[in-house]
């Protein structure tokens, strides 16, 4: 908590985590702005596929992360939430009070 406050006060660059991969068929990423994320866990509850979890990162902040086994198959686990017709706001994004989560499309 103190770390995060300090980071905001001295305006250090944000810490952006990109989970996922690129393969022959495209980009599949979940992007978390860990400065905005306060580890409240609302997205973890909202995700119908149960792919998110809250961890303490290497710099002792509580943040959301994509479970390791799922960062390798985002294309498949996130598919049920993503219509082919194009980007919509996803359940995890709606649940997040600070707008810390973005998805690649």
């Amino acid at each position: 908590m103190f770390n995060r406050l300090l980071r905001r006060l001295v305006i250090l660059p944000g810490y952006i985590a990109n989970y996922g991969y690129t393969d022959g068929s495209g980009d599949y990423y979940i992007i978390v702005d860990t400065d905005k994320c306060d580890g409240c866990g609302k997205c973890v509850e909202a995700c119908p596929q149960d792919i998110l979890e809250i961890i303490t990162d290497d710099y002792d902040d509580l943040v959301v992360t994509v479970k390791e086994e799922h960062s390798k198959n985002l294309k498949y686990v996130c598919a049920p939430c993503k219509p082919v017709s194009g980007p919509v706001e996803l359940k995890c994004q709606i649940a997040c009070p600070s707008g810390a989560i973005t998805h690649s499309w």
């Binding site: 198959n73 294309k75 498949y76 686990v77 598919a79 049920p80 993503k82 219509p83 082919v84």
Partner: peptide, 11 residues
């Protein structure tokens, strides 16, 4: 099968 069916579920 799990991969293909997840993809198919997009339609």
């Amino acid at each position: 099968a799990s991969r293909v069916s997840s993809m198919v579920r997009r339609i």
